[in-house]
Design a binder for these strands. Sequence first.
DNA 1: GTGGCAGTGTGACGGCCATCACAGACAGGA
DNA 2: TCCTGTCTGTGATGGCCGTCACACTGCCAC
Lengths: 238, 238
Amino acid sequence: MRAPYGLEIIESCLSCPHREDRLFCNLPPPAVQRLAAITSAAAYPKGATLFVEGQSPRGVFILCSGKVKLSTSSADGRSLILRISQAGEVLGLPATVTGKPYELTADVIEPTQANFISRTDFLLFLREHGEAALRVAQQLGETYHSAIAEMRTIGLSHSAGEKLARFLLDLSADHDEAKGEVRLTLTLTHEEIAQMIGASRETVTRLFADFKKKQLLQVKGSTVIIKNMAGLERVVST
Amino acid sequence: MRAPYGLEIIESCLSCPHREDRLFCNLPPPAVQRLAAITSAAAYPKGATLFVEGQSPRGVFILCSGKVKLSTSSADGRSLILRISQAGEVLGLPATVTGKPYELTADVIEPTQANFISRTDFLLFLREHGEAALRVAQQLGETYHSAIAEMRTIGLSHSAGEKLARFLLDLSADHDEAKGEVRLTLTLTHEEIAQMIGASRETVTRLFADFKKKQLLQVKGSTVIIKNMAGLERVVST
DNA sequence: GTGGCAGTGTGACGGCCATCACAGACAGGA
DNA sequence: TCCTGTCTGTGATGGCCGTCACACTGCCAC
């Protein structure tokens, strides 16, 4: 296969940089080989869609690079973004194992390479390798965990300020802290942030201005520097 | 063990009425026997707590009878109810398989009998019986599914009326319809409903009055009769 | 350049609903 | 029987924030 979108296609899972620390790491070699046999790689451009909410599950996608937006939307066009997935994550797992329709829509927001495994192959594989099934269960448990976390930010806090602060703190949890500051590069527009926390675009804009004025953070282009973590924490618990 | 709260203790999983159609149904007999060996039954009165958000996971609880409220709460005492679990469901699964702390609190709201399996026993069992691990993965997938559904009602609809209508419709999905009506017996207080949909107690009261006035439903004690499903649907998509 | 488009900043307005406050309803216990 | 606590019903008030409207920026294509 050629690499249509300027992406280098990694030919095998074996050379994937995330192989070691992810879902199927450390499986016995025969299992890994079997896995490689049923896996097919593909590249997707920005704007592509891996699957759509309501579709019956075709299989799972393992992200090797890029970013994918997971969202759900209502009949009237409102949409809620649940998560931005990064390299190493597995998408479509719940739907694939249960057989129920995909509950989310996966849109590519940065050029992405992903490995695909069809549902039938995947289920067969799990049945043959109990160890992998357990690994999948753990993965699902963690996904659930983060879904609950998201619910807490959306459901428990009313003021939009609270939600935004919580959102930023959740993000910064993944990043390193240097002398009281945390640097985030967030490729999301205000609109998208609004959809993640259940607020309107204008409110997000205003809140950012507000936080800047209160010296809680700085914004430079697409990087956000959190100057005062404690201050944000205080916003959350008000 | 005696039955302290007027509950008859069912001695074995084998006689549990939910055995057939639930998580570990149709496992090969040796697996079921092994499962029975590591399972211990107990009864819990109303008000008891099976586990608390943040605790490290002790194991899973399989409900044989009764009702359990699953909720999460913030530092300032606000709480969000995610689900009311009924007989046949398994609680604590995500935390137990991942090893992360319980993400929810489980409070008994109707006298409950549950079977308990300790984490170490459970993990060992899953490792020995790959088939069961797959079953667990499916169960987790469905739990995730319903979490997403909950998020949609909380996150995507703003008006409280919308959320309440959606909540009632979700409930009625489980119940049978007879000549355009659906009968729900809901043991929840307005306060609890409010915590499920992210609204205040008073708003729920007012909305019920409103829905009654609009002939959408009737309330008799703790049973709600939905008279006009289509009307409720219309409230949802406004 | 210029046009177009996506994203951002900001004001004005108004409605929904959280909050407070209190009253009635109902059950259970002493 | 009264008392006490939990649940429900309802009014008054005020603030948050969603919505509409428009200006301004930066960027890309042509």
